[in-house]
């Protein structure tokens, strides 16, 4: 039960400039505990909206989402959420950022310090404890956000294009790190990405959403066994097959979006 996400008939409509827009249309999906699921789809298909709804930031118009056996209503504090945008607090040093969720939970200073050091070691940022985020590169800031999220060990991680802004090499390093963490800590991970290779390389299942209104169009099971090596996985025949199949599903959606 812990980590399971059930999405049942979720709609999202909103009104802007006097027009009602349907962002998501009756989306239903079961995500198993410990599963790594990716969402791909053309821009504006509501991937991020869906993540925001699981996190409880955005209310849904219809349907419900059940996470850890509880209906999501209001901020969901059982998830870790890494947004597309830089969410590391610029006025706090690296260690104070990572300690933030522990501080909120009233963890003692001594224990907090120890945990922070562990986390910084995990994301290979030892020695940057006292640096401010502006002194770090984009990739390092992402790793601070990752450490912060893992510090309070939520059983479910929501990652919204977490590595989108990184260069190709660093991206793969981070993907590998993510896979290692997933394997060691048995988390449920939901990943939104626009990068098909990334989705295939790390996921158990890849969900294709259609262009607006967002509906689940196709679900591709990725049968590549774990542990995976993200550098080598792309040369496997299974990878190629999945890529072709997903691309076929996705390309028609993208051209549809462009002609609008």
């Amino acid at each position: 039960m812990q980590g399971a996400i059930t999405i049942e008939g979720v709609d999202k409509r909103y009104i802007s400039r006097g027009r009602e827009t349907v962002a998501l249309d009756s989306v239903s999906l079961n995500i198993q505990p410990g599963e790594l699921v990716s969402f791909v789809g053309p821009s504006g298909c509501g991937k991020s909206t869906l993540m925001n709804m699981i996190a409880g930031i955005v209310p849904m118009t219809n349907g419900r989402i059940i996470h850890n056996g509880k209906k999501v209503s209001g901020i969901n504090r059982d998830v870790g959420y890494m947004t597309q945008a830089d969410s590391v607090l610029p006025w706090r040093t690296v260690e104070k950022n990572v300690a933030l969720p522990l501080e909120y939970r009233g963890v003692r200073t001594q224990e907090r310090k120890q945990r922070v050091d562990e986390m910084l070691k995990l994301v290979e940022l030892e020695g940057f404890n006292k640096s401010f985020p502006r002194e770090l590169s984009g990739g390092m800031r992402k790793r601070v956000a990752l450490a912060q999220m893992l510090a309070y060990s939520p059983n479910t991680l929501l990652l919204d294009e977490p590595f989108g802004a990184l260069d190709a090499q660093l991206k793969m390093v981070m993907q590998q790190q993510l896979l290692n963490i997933w394997r060691e800590q048995k988390k449920t991970i939901v990943l939104v990405t626009h990068d098909l290779s990334e989705a295939i390389a790390v996921s158990n299942r890849v969900v294709v959403l259609s262009g607006r209104p967002g509906r689940i169009k196709h679900i591709e099971n990725i049968d590549i066994p774990h542990p995976r090596d993200v550098f080598k996985v792309r040369f496997l025949p299974e990878f190629e097959r999945a890529y072709d199949s997903l691309w076929e599903q996705l390309s028609s959606e993208i051209t549809k979006g462009e002609s609008l």
Binding site: T83, L89, R105
Partner: peptide, 23 residues
């Protein structure tokens, strides 16, 4: 973004005020 992400991390209203809004 800062407000939402800290809320998800477990911040109460007071904690959001102290760690995000005021700084």
């Amino acid at each position: 973004i800062y407000i939402h992400s800290t809320q998800i991390m477990g911040a109460s209203n007071w904690a959001v005020l102290r760690t995000v809004v005021i700084p």
